[in-house]
Amino acid sequence: MDGPGFSFSRSALDVPDLARALADPACGALVGFEGRVRDHNEGRHVERLEYEGYEELGLKEGARIIAEALERFDIAHARCVHRLGLLALGDIAVWVGVSAHHRGEAFAACRYIIDEVKDRVPIWKKEHYADGDSGWINCEVRSEAPPP
């Protein structure tokens, strides 16, 4: 696979194209995760989202996460792309793809990458609500706790 393991995109993600780049005749599993823009948070109706990134550090931290995944799990290839800019409901905000010989390691690595990206990469999300209000998640507005 060529190119960086982690990147940002200001335009819509072409998932089939991203997945094709992970294809490998030795791999029986390709796991992909799509993070999509949801229409609600903390009981409020979300109309659109804005992502801002500190790209210089984000690219380095994202690449470190991909390298960690390749070291910790028995996988062949891994890739993550995160959108920046204005997104509409249903748009794909982040995509993670992992190919491996077997599915177990591919699922585990995919989970590891999305969890670490959400936790460590300097990306910020501003939600714009139906009532005209807006706020930065985790700074001005709480994030809805994920189910256990």
Partner: peptide, 10 residues
């Protein structure tokens, strides 16, 4: 120097 507020990717 860059100050990094709580992140919220994904």
């Amino acid at each position: 120097v860059v100050f990094i507020p709580p992140v919220a990717g994904g």
